[in-house]
Structures are given as structure tokens and as C-alpha cells.
Computed example of a mutant assay.
Amino acid sequence: MTKPVANILGVPFTTRGFGETVTHLVERIESGEQMHVLTANPEIVMLANENQAFRTIVEQAYVVPDGIGIVYAAKWTNQPIHERVTGVELVEALMAEADKKQWNVYLLGASPEVIQLAAQKLEQRFPNAHIVGYRDGYFRQDEEEQIVQEIASKKTQLLFVAMGSPKQDQWLARYRDQLQASLMMGVGGTFDVISGKVKRAPMLWQKLNLEWLYRLLATPSRWKRQLAIPRFVWTVLKEKWSNRS
């Protein structure tokens, strides 16, 4: 029997494939559970290794492997993660479930233009899902309590938050108990993709597991963030070799 959790540098990842993950999350929502879903790539793993407060957040979340580097690391360390569970695809799959089950959905974050466009596109594609509210991520700290109360009043099954990482997951962890949402998930740049403002890598790049390279070529300013990848690879291999000795 496959273990439900794989440990990559101390971060507990679910080992479920994409379809199994969606099924499992839907079951937990319907059973009345509350959960914080965190999509983690090598950058997030390295941050969790360097920041104890963030590591605590990660350890308490339902962590899915968003990043081919995680799949490779699992292979190198003989752990059963075999496919990515990307944030964009998980949001779309959960929205399809919301459409079937008429769930309430709240969208928070991104720019005013992007969040409005994303809400419109999702309403067109999933007309039976109830988008009960949305607002951009440009708010002051003294507005947070009112935003949290508004979201809580909507009794949402799905809350998607786009503030960039790690801020979005820190925000969700801070207000988790007050938000009253069944599933809370930080979604990074997903609203940019859904709104059409940012194009996802072509399917060939996705199939070749080179989506990270496509994003880097499209946005060269990401290069500093991408430095986490070689550090991650070195740390995983170093740990593997030290466990052998």
C-alpha cells in the first residue's frame, strides 16, 4: 500500500495523483472538514527549511507537489510521488466540482483588473458555481479584519487567495479559524492565467516538464527565484548521500 505522505526535506507532500487529490479534497469538503491546501515547489521547500515559522505553516497544511523538481526529488529518494498537482489545474478541477455541487466560491488577491476578469471568466465557464464575492489584493492591514468577516459571512466551500508566496499562505494560516471556508488555497499567479493576462506555457513545454524554463524565458526577472532550484537539488542529493553512509 502506498504511503499517503512523502517527506521531501522535511516537507510532507501528499502522494496522491491529480485525480485522486481532487476526489480526496471533495470528500473532505463534503464531510465538513476545514483545510489549507498549499501548492509547493522547490522554492517553497527551501523557504520552509530556512524559516521555522513558515515551516510550521507548511507542516499543518495539505501539501501538493506543484513543481517537477518535487517529482524528481521523490524519484531520487525512492518516494511515491509520480505526478505534479499544479495550482492552475487544481483550481479548475475544484471549480468544475463547485459547478456540479453549486458550491460558494470567494476570490481574493491580484490586481483589480485581473480579479474582475478572472471572476467573469470563471462565472462564464462554471455558471452553477456561486462566486459569492471577490476583491483585489491591494488592501491595507487595517482593512483585513473587515475582509475576513466578509468572507466568513459568505460560508464558502472554496476560498482562493492570490498574494504571492509565501505571503498568501501566511495570511491564510493567520486567519484560518476565522475565515470559515472549507478549503483555503493560495493560488499565486493562477488568476493572471485564468483572466487571460498571462499565457501558460504551450502544451509541449508542459509535457516536457519545462514549464519553469518557459516562465523564466518569458519573465527573465524571475532568475533570482529560480536559484532555489539548484540549491534544492544539491540539498536533496546531499541528504540522500548522507543517509547512505
Results as ranks from 00 to 15, higher is better:
residue 114 V to C: 14
residue 44 I to N: 05
residue 32 G to S: 12
residue 90 L to K: 02
residue 63 V to M: 06
residue 54 F to M: 11
residue 97 E to K: 14
residue 56 T to A: 15
residue 90 L to D: 01
residue 28 R to Y: 12
residue 66 D to P: 04
residue 94 L to W: 04
residue 101 K to F: 03
residue 20 E to R: 01
residue 39 T to P: 02
residue 6 A to S: 14
residue 53 A to W: 04
residue 71 V to T: 01
residue 109 G to A: 10
residue 32 G to Y: 12
residue 31 S to V: 08
residue 10 G to I: 12
residue 13 F to E: 05
residue 106 Y to E: 08
residue 101 K to Y: 07
residue 28 R to I: 07
residue 75 K to I: 00
residue 104 N to G: 15
residue 57 I to N: 05
residue 78 N to C: 03
residue 63 V to I: 12
residue 59 E to C: 11
residue 41 N to C: 09
residue 60 Q to F: 02
residue 67 G to Q: 02
residue 56 T to H: 11
residue 36 H to F: 10
residue 84 R to K: 10
residue 10 G to D: 07
residue 88 V to R: 01
residue 16 R to I: 00
residue 83 E to A: 06
residue 95 M to F: 12
residue 100 K to L: 15
residue 103 W to K: 08
residue 46 M to D: 02
residue 18 F to C: 02
residue 41 N to V: 05
residue 57 I to L: 09
residue 71 V to Y: 03
residue 17 G to C: 11
residue 18 F to P: 02
residue 2 T to L: 09
residue 75 K to Y: 00
residue 91 V to F: 08
residue 20 E to K: 01
residue 51 N to H: 13
residue 94 L to A: 08
residue 63 V to W: 09
residue 32 G to T: 15
residue 21 T to Y: 10
residue 90 L to S: 02
residue 97 E to C: 03
residue 86 T to H: 06
